[in-house]
Amino acid sequence: MSTHDAVVMGCSAGGLSALQRVLPGLDRHLAVPVVLCCHTGSADVSLLVELLARVCPLPVTEAQERAPADPGVVHVAPSGYHLLVEDNFRFSLSVDARVAYARPSIDVLFETAAEAWRERLVAVLMTGANSDGANGIAAVRRAGGYAVVQEPATAEADVMPRAALELAGADACLTLDAIAAKINELCLP
């Protein structure tokens, strides 16, 4: 029986190669939504979606506002918008001010996902050169969810995982190669 109903992931600098390491390990029978916020700096995420789709056993798509967070699908936050999860597990978008200089902000995704899925959420924070995501990890843990932070010494940029560990700690601190197995363990039916 799976103990968790959804996965949110966040990364920034070095994020693409980290995701290319992690996503191939996801089990194709994973029946929970995976929601991804990666700062790319480009005007749209279609290239990121395409690159990740090549290596991921699950379908990868840009998150659509108002649509449900479908199980067994990797949803990528669009560029230039905050991606939020509503209490009915559907996505909404906002163009409110940047949070920690970022839009999409990992904090915004994690905090709203934590309110929606509460203790049934797994959050994964990886490489990045800013502290976005730290408040989000704290919110996930406060709600009783499971927080995974990449082992900072193994991160291409360690500021993001370090900031999260300092602020909120984690339920598991893992290398990239161990992250997919942990997600499968927590979420497989």
Binding site: H82, L84, S92, S94, E115
Partner: peptide
């Protein structure tokens, strides 16, 4: 209004 954004504001 959509609740999540309104709450944040």
């Amino acid at each position: 209004y959509a609740p999540a954004s309104l709450k944040r504001r």
